[in-house]
Simulated scan of single mutants.
Amino acid sequence: MAEKVVATEEALELIRTLQDVHGDLMFHQSGGCCDGSSPMCYQKGEFRVGDSDLLLGEIGGMPFYISKDQYEYWKHTQLIIDAVDGRGGMFSLEGPEGKRFLTRSRVFTEQEKE
């Protein structure tokens, strides 16, 4: 099966920049509204994951979690984390960089589901 979460080169570059400043990072994709609908980047350990979160994979060597409810909507897709110009979530570390993380997705092929 294909990786469930991957990152573009732009996102990986932003992750490296943030890691140089903040150390190890972690990501969380929830299904909430507003900021919660974007992938949020935190210093590792600054966001407490719980029983309702799943470790989806890693991007740039950093763990990427998703809420179980949101995973049910997206389990048939690969999440592609990108970085674009703009302001991110107010609690996400990339805000001061003038960039924001963005989730794109694509449906898995039948071969990738196996």
Rank of each mutant, 00 (worst) to 15 (best):
K75D: 04
G50L: 07
K68P: 09
S38G: 02
P63I: 10
G60L: 10
S37I: 06
S38R: 03
F47W: 13
P39Y: 01
P63T: 09
Y42P: 12
D85T: 13
W74R: 09
G61W: 07
E46W: 08
D82R: 01
C41P: 06
G86K: 12
D85H: 11
D53P: 02
Y71L: 07
I81P: 00
D69R: 13
G31L: 07
S67I: 02
A83I: 04
Y73T: 08
E58T: 13
Y71G: 00
L54N: 06
F27R: 09
L54P: 03
C34R: 13
G50R: 14
R48W: 04
G57D: 02
C41T: 12
Y42R: 10
D53M: 04
Q78M: 08
D69M: 11
V84E: 14
S52N: 14
V84I: 15
S38A: 13
A83E: 05
V49P: 06
Q43T: 14
Q29G: 03
G50H: 13
I80W: 01
C33W: 05
H28G: 01
D35W: 08
G36W: 11
C41D: 11
K68C: 09
Y65L: 07
P39I: 02
L54I: 15
L55N: 05
D35Y: 09
I81E: 00
M62L: 01
G31A: 10
F27T: 08
L54H: 03
C34N: 14
P63A: 13
D82T: 05
L55Y: 04
G57N: 06
D82S: 08
H28L: 15
C34Q: 13
K75V: 04
D82E: 02
G86F: 12
I81M: 03
Y73P: 00
P63K: 13
G32R: 07
G57M: 00
V49N: 05
S67M: 05
G60E: 11
T77Q: 05
E72R: 12
G50I: 01
E46S: 09
I59G: 09
M62F: 05
V49A: 06
G86D: 12
C34D: 15
K75F: 02
D82P: 06
G86M: 10
V49Q: 08
G50D: 15
Q29A: 10
D82Y: 03
A83G: 05
F64V: 06
G32F: 03
I80D: 01
M40S: 15
G45M: 05
Q70I: 05
M62D: 05
D51H: 12
G36C: 08
D53E: 13
K75C: 03
Q43C: 14
D82N: 13
G57A: 05
W74P: 00
G86I: 10
S67V: 00
H76E: 15
S37Y: 01
H76R: 14
V49T: 15
D53A: 07
V84G: 04
W74A: 04
S30N: 08
W74D: 12
L79N: 11
I81W: 01
M40F: 08
C41S: 13
S30L: 07
